[in-house]
């Protein structure tokens, strides 16, 4: 058994969406380790990556438990192919320059910080517990990325241009954060999941405030890309998984 398909129960899918977002973004950030613009950022980006991987693990474990197929966090992370991954497209976008990484982190964290804060009140005790821990982490990720975005936007002409270009490039991936499909609707009604639309005002407010301070222009809401949460990804995810899953694929069944 080298490739698995996760159960399609809504709760399992919801846990996987959250877990995949965290793992894929954590993977991207971990690519910086040893290559960041300064030592402090090598450490800070690794820290954020560690938080995200740390969020993904209990979510995968929970998904595996809900499935009841005898899988675990590693089977779900390492044996699903790209079409089975449920992360939003934003988090799989390449690191680009430091501005792209910071903008990607900021746009995501501006959503996730309030998301975890509210999910801590979920009727599902496991989600609530995971959210309560992640809330503090996401608040730090937001602070860190917002501070950098302000520095870059209001730094030199070059950093301003790079930050604006990154924002313009990634903006079309922000719409997907606010989507809720039939899988989520039922969970939202039961008070287990969050309606992402309720986070819109806070996200808008955070983005406008930080972009204002950074002297950056908010791009217009044009066409928004979508598909990650149903398994239609960009070309990038396949390469991420090729790296990540290499050992598990090359030596099936081994214990590491």
């Amino acid at each position: 058994m080298t490739t698995i398909i996760a159960a399609d129960a809504p709760l399992v899918q919801y846990a996987l969406r959250l877990a995949d977002n965290a793992l894929v973004l954590g993977h991207r950030l971990s690519e910086w380790c040893g290559h960041a613009p300064m030592l402090e950022e090598d450490i800070a980006l690794a820290n954020i990556a560690l938080d995200l991987i740390g969020q993904a693990r209990p979510l995968y474990a929970y998904a595996a438990e809900l499935e009841g197929e005898g899988r675990n966090e590693d089977k779900l992370a390492y044996l699903r192919d790209a079409s089975q991954y449920r992360n939003v497209l934003l988090v799989e976008q390449p690191n680009g320059d430091f501005a792209v990484t910071i903008v990607r982190q900021f746009l995501y964290a501006a959503f996730m910080a309030p998301f975890w804060r509210l999910l801590a009140g979920s009727r599902d005790a496991t989600f609530a517990a995971i959210a309560a821990k992640a809330e503090k982490e996401a608040a730090y990720h937001l602070r860190h990325s917002a501070e950098w975005l302000i520095r870059l936007g209001d730094g030199t002409p070059e950093s301003h241009a790079r930050a604006q270009a990154a924002l313009d490039e990634l903006w079309m991936y922000t719409g997907e954060l606010f989507e809720a499909d039939a899988i989520e609707r039922g969970l939202i009604e039961r008070g287990v999941a969050l309606d992402p639309q309720t986070l819109r005002p806070e996200w808008d407010e955070t983005v406008d405030r930080v972009l204002g301070e950074a002297t950056l222009k908010r791009p217009p809401d044009g066409w928004m890309q979508t598909g990650g949460r149903t398994g239609r990804h960009s070309e990038h995810l396949g390469f991420i998984l090729a790296d990540m899953q290499f050992l598990q694929r090359a030596y099936p069944g081994a214990t590491w």
Partner: peptide
């Protein structure tokens, strides 16, 4: 750092990333 993205389990990945991060801290 070479192997962070290819670590074979999530536990190993987190441990390796934390280790390489420690080395950065030692440098600091």
């Amino acid at each position: 750092g070479n192997w962070i993205t290819r670590a074979p389990t999530l536990r190993r990945k987190a441990a390796l990333l934390a280790k390489v991060q420690d080395e950065g801290g030692h440098g600091l």
